[in-house]
Amino acid sequence: MNNWFNIKRFWLVLRHEFAEAWPELAIFAAVFMVIMCWPVVFFKGDAGQTQVILGVAGYGVICIGVVLYYWILASRVFANIQRPERKIGYLTLPASNAEKFYSRLLLYWILPLAFGFIPYPHTGAAINNAWMYFFIAVILGVQSSLAVLFGTIFRKGGLLVLILAEVVLTVALVAYFSTNPQAVKNLDLAFVAQIADYVGVMEPDRGRAAKLAFGIAAVPTVFNIGLARIIFSRKRLRRPLVYVEQ
């Protein structure tokens, strides 16, 4: 039998993982529904000025909520190798490293990303906006793939490291732009307009912008997942379990 990837064995691993993970995945699905649906409940009615402001704020909250949601979800991909008691059973399960890796990735990353945004085209809002493509692809794809990667390296601290890295990056950017007025000048409207013009975001046909956004996002995402896959295949116990005298 193929020792790298076998569909029958992959299905067995997927079934095995789902049987243990479904209560957690159900909670995540419920949380996602709450994040996506609460503005609909809160901001229905006439679109007055206050409502519009609140609606924009709500939209921002959804964006931040969704990003955080996918970070947390992605950082749970390898939750079952965080504790040695679970790790032993999981790593010695008769399946290849690839089958184990992709089954967890499918349940905790690929399917939630896919299902989370299937409703969007039907709303007619997001899919027509190239920047929304960019938001989904870059923010969710790249950043949550970093959570997957950090999850394989830092065990329980994967999410924490990602948040820390984001905070450090933000502080560094703010510090850089606040102390370099020239850098701010370089970011003038003409410069932004040039990029917008290049990717065709101002044009009615936004396909080019979307493709570029996906292209930009795909490279680091594939790199992060590939690296996580290599690290996962080298996973081992860190130390023996604690001896307990009976």
Partner: peptide, 21 residues
């Protein structure tokens, strides 16, 4: 950790986790 080898090996660790089922 090839699947063929693991299918012929079982380890009962000192401490282990069994799922709630």
């Amino acid at each position: 950790r090839s699947p063929d080898a693991l299918a012929n090996l079982f380890i009962v660790p000192e401490e282990f986790d069994l799922p709630a089922m």
